[in-house]
Every structure is written in C-alpha cells, then in structure tokens.
C-alpha cells in the first residue's frame, strides 16, 4: 500500500482527506450546535444537484454546484427564520426538490454516467490539482472566518434572541454560516459524494459534542475525527479495493459509536 504514496493521485487524495475532513468537521460544529442538521443535508444535496445540472448543460459542475448551494443557502435561511411552515418541513421540500432535479438530470444524460455517479459516490482518487487548491483555500478561509466571527457564532449557538439583544447582526451571520457551509460542501463534494457528505458534517461533530467541555475543544476534536475518518477510509478503501466514500462514512459512524460507548457514564452524568 505504501507504494501508493508515490503516486500524485494518491497524494492529492490524502491532502483532500486531511483538509476536507478538517473543514467539514469544523463546519459540522455549527450545523450540530445551532441544531440545523437537516439544513446540512439539504445544502449538500443542492450542491450535488447543481453538479449534475452543470454536467448536463456543459458548464463546469463545480460552478453549478456552487450556484445551487448558494441559492439553497439563501432560500433556506429566510425560510427557516420567517416561514410560518415548520422549518424542517420547508427544508424537506427544498431537499426533495433538489434531489428530484439531480436524478432527473442523471436520467437525461446520454452515454456514460460515470462522471455524474462520481458526484453521488465521490471520487477522491481522481481529484485534480485545481480541486486540491480549492480545498486548501476553503480550509484556510474557514479558519479565518472562525477567528473573525468566533464571538458572533458562540452567541448564535447559545441563543439567537440573546445575540440580537447584544447587538449581533444575527440574520446576517446566520446566512453567512449557511453560505460558508454550502461552499465547504461544494468544494469537498468529490471526497465522499453528494449523497453521503452530510454524514461528514454530522458524525464527527456529534462525536466531539459528546466529550468536549469547551467549544474550542469541540472544533479541534471534530476536525480531528473528520481527518481520521477521511484518511482511514481512504487507506482502507485502497487496501481492500472498495468505494472510498462509503468507507469514509462508515469509519465516521464507527468513531461516533466508539466515542459514545467509551463515554456512556460521562454522557449520562452530563445530562443529569
């Protein structure tokens, strides 16, 4: 297996696994703590649908994935805040719409659908230098974003009303969080694919939430769990020649399960 490290494609995959895993782990903390996991699901599927539509129209799938996730994040924000419909229902409607568009797009495709399928299941081994550059840029952007808006994010996580009274522009920051989440998902779509990427938003951060005492700890642990999931998943898939995306998600679920089982007593005490 070590000889794989000599190949450019595997080096790219490893960089994507480390930086993408960390990025999704950090963004996942917002998704889990603000209590919007379903929004994460809808955003990731919107990016997936955008990619498929891009392929169908002959436009760069990444650009269309970005456009779709941008539209989804800009419409989900107001819907979840102002709509009279239960937020999860309105998000569910958007989710089913984008999934419908994605599969309709795949249905319209002529010839080989391998590229579209790679958006569903991911193709971490075929990432280009351009993909890696984008994944790196978004990773450092997230770190800067976190440093700049740390206080605002903490306030929104705690209570939106309290944040408003403290003078924080709650809606603007909330929409910005959704936008950065959508952008992160889009850039990392090829790592595990559109159908599974939301698991990388939720599993590592949920595991971190079980044991972290401080939010800074949670960011670190969640990023670490994300990296371990992606790197282990990649190595296992290379070793046994199985799809990497699925293995990455299974590893992230196992990490959550093990964290839960090892900390059962502490978690129970935390709830009392």
């Amino acid at each position: 297996m070590w000889e794989l490290l000599g190949y450019k494609f595997f080096q790219h995959a490893l960089i994507a696994a480390i930086l993408g895993g960390a990025s999704l782990g950090i963004v996942g903390v917002w998704v889990v703590l603000i209590g919007i996991p379903f929004i994460g699901v809808a955003l990731s599927h919107a990016a997936f649908a955008g990619g498929v539509v891009g392929m169908l129209l002959g436009i760069n799938p990444l650009i269309m994935a970005f456009v779709f996730s941008l539209i989804a994040s800009l419409s989900i924000g107001p819907l979840s805040e102002r709509s009279r419909i239960e937020p999860n229902i309105s998000i569910g409607i958007i989710f089913s719409l984008v999934l419908g568009i994605a599969f309709l797009g795949i249905g319209f495709m002529k010839g080989s659908r391998n590229e579209a399928l790679s958006l569903i299941w991911g193709s971490i081994l075929t990432l280009s230098r351009w993909d890696i550059l984008l994944i790196t840029v978004i990773f450092f952007f997230i770190l800067l974003f976190l440093l700049k808006f740390n206080m605002e994010i903490k306030a929104i996580i705690y209570n939106k009303k309290v944040a408003h009274v403290a003078g924080i522009p709650v809606s603007r920051i909330f929409y910005l969080l959704l936008f950065v989440t959508g952008f992160t998902v889009t850039v990392n779509l090829n790592t595990v694919g559109g159908l599974l990427i939301f698991s990388l938003l939720i599993n590592p951060s949920s595991a971190a939430c079980l044991i972290a005492k401080r939010i800074e700890q949670m960011y670190l642990l969640s990023a670490l769990f994300g990296v371990v999931s992606c790197v282990c998943g990649l190595l296992i898939s290379a070793l046994f020649n199985v799809p990497s995306g699925s293995v990455i998600i299974i590893v992230s679920s196992v990490i959550f399960l093990v964290t839960f089982l090892l900390n059962r007593r502490r978690i129970a005490e935390k709830r009392v």
Partner: peptide
C-alpha cells in the same frame, strides 16, 4: 434582557465566561 429560558439544548460546550462575554460584544 434576561429571558425566561435561554437554553435550546441540554449540553452546550460553552463556559460561563463565553456566555457573559456575549453581553459585551
């Protein structure tokens, strides 16, 4: 403004210092 119930979740990884610092944003 102190609200009736401010906690949206039972386990929230924020310290007292984190929450008080929100006030002086």
């Amino acid at each position: 403004y102190v609200f009736q119930e401010e906690y949206s979740r039972s386990n929230i990884p924020l310290t007292v210092e984190d929450v008080v610092s929100i006030g002086g944003y």
